[in-house]
Nucleic acid binder design. Structure first.
Length: 301
DNA sequence: ATTAATGTTCAGAA
DNA sequence: TTTCTGAACATTAA
C-alpha cells in the first residue's frame, strides 16, 4: 500500500529517532518466511549497533536512516528536510527501508506479532524502537555504504521525488517514453513516489486519459499534471495516507489514514464519478495492474 | 477447492 | 535500446 504519502506519514512518525543510538537489531520469532535483509542480519547488526541515527529522510517510497560515522562526533541534522530530496547524498552510511506492497515502519502497536519482521532497538530519546512490520514479506531492508548511495538511489536508479520535481523536469523525463502516461508515472526511474492509487487519482484530477502515450501528451497537459500531482499528494499526506478496506496501513497507535474518503476513482469501478456524475468509473488493465478513470473527465485527446 | 486480485520491484526475455 | 512478463509472498474474495 505504501506510496509517497503513506511513506512520508511513516517517516514523520519516526522522525524523533534522530540522535538515537541503535543498541540492537533483532528479528522476532515467526514461522513466516523472512524478509530480505542485505547484507545478512548478523552483518547488518555488526555494522550498525552502537552508531547513531543522523537523519530520517525519504526518497520516493523509501525511508532512509542515515547513520553517524563510527564513534566520531558528527553533527546531527535535526531538521525534517531531506537532503535526499535534492539528490544530494550525505557522507554517511545509511539503512534504506523499502516497504513495497505491505510493509509498515512503526514506533509501536504493529497490527499483529506474526508479521513483525525486524526491530531496531534504540536508546537516547523517547522513541525506544523502530519496528518493521510486513504482511506479505516482499519488503527489503538494506545497509548501503556511503559510496553506494549515489549509485543505488541516484537519478539512474530512482528519479526525482514527486514532490520535488519541477514541471520542466517532469515533462522532460516523462516524455522520454512511448508507454501510456499511467504506466510511465509508476516507473520509479522516471519519477519516484507515485504508485497505483495516486497515479489514478492524479490523472483524474488533471483530466488526462491514462492510456495517452506519455510522449504524446499535449503541451498544456504538463503543468496540469504537475499541479495535480502536488495537490493530490499533499492532500493525501495531510490525511495521513490511504487505508484501504483491508485496514493494514496505519501508523503508530493504530492510527489509520483518511484519504480513502477522498478517492475519486481508485477502486470505484462501476460507481458514479464523484466529479461529473455523468459516467461510471471504468476499470482497465495496464502493465498487469488495474487502472481506474472517468471517461468523461478524462477524455482521449 | 482453485483461481484471481492486492499497495511494488526487478531480473530476464521479447 | 526499450518494453513486457512473471515471480517474490500472504491473505481474501469469487
Amino acid at each position: 500500500m505504501p506510496e509517497l504519502p503513506e511513506v512520508e506519514t511513516m517517516r514523520r512518525s519516526i522522525a524523533a529517532a534522530v540522535g538515537c543510538r541503535i543498541c540492537d537489531v533483532v528479528r522476532p520469532p515467526s514461522s513466516l518466511k523472512s524478509i530480505l535483509i542485505t547484507p545478512r542480519l548478523d552483518y547488518l547488526r555488526r555494522r550498525v549497533v552502537g552508531r547513531r541515527i543522523a537523519s530520517v529522510s525519504r526518497l520516493g517510497k523509501r525511508i532512509i536512516l542515515e547513520l553517524t560515522d563510527g564513534q566520531s562526533v558528527k553533527k546531527l541534522s535535526g531538521g525534517t528536510r531531506s537532503s535526499f530530496l535534492e539528490n544530494k547524498f550525505p557522507a554517511g552510511d545509511a539503512i534504506v527501508i523499502e516497504p513495497r506492497m505491505s510493509g509498515l515502519v512503526l514506533r509501536f502497536d504493529p497490527p499483529d506479532r506474526k508479521h513483525l519482521r525486524l526491530v531496531f532497538q534504540l536508546e537516547g530519546g523517547e522513541l525506544g524502537q523502530i519496528l518493521f512490520w510486513d504482511q506479505r514479506g516482499l519488503g527489503v531492508v538494506r545497509l548501503l555504504a556511503a559510496e553506494e548511495l549515489a549509485e543505488r538511489l541516484g537519478p539512474q536508479r530512482l528519479g526525482p521525488d514527486a514532490l520535488n520535481i519541477t514541471v520542466t523536469e517532469l515533462q522532460k523525463r516523462l516524455s522520454s517514453t512511448r508507454r501510456a502516461i499511467k504506466v510511465a508515472l509508476l516507473d520509479q526511474r522516471l519519477l519516484a513516489g507515485i504508485g497505483n492509487i495516486y497515479a489514478a487519482e492524479i490523472l483524474h484530477f488533471a483530466g488526462i486519459h491514462p492510456a495517452v502515450p506519455s510522449d504524446r501528451l499535449p503541451t498544456d497537459a504538463w503543468p496540469k499534471l504537475h499541479q495535480a500531482m502536488r495537490s493530490v499528494l499533499r492532500r493525501a499526506i495531510r490525511h495521513r495516507g490511504t487505508t484501504l478496506s483491508d485496514g493494514t496501513y496505519r501508523v503508530a497507535r493504530r492510527r489509520k489514514g483518511n484519504f480513502q474518503l477522498h478517492l475519486r476513482v481508485y477502486g470505484r469501478a462501476g460507481e458514479q464519478c464523484r466529479s461529473c456524475s455523468q459516467a461510471q468509473v471504468l476499470r482497465i488493465v495496464q502493465a498487469q495492474r488495474s487502472t481506474y478513470y472517468c471517461p468523461v473527465c478524462q477524455p482521449m485527446p
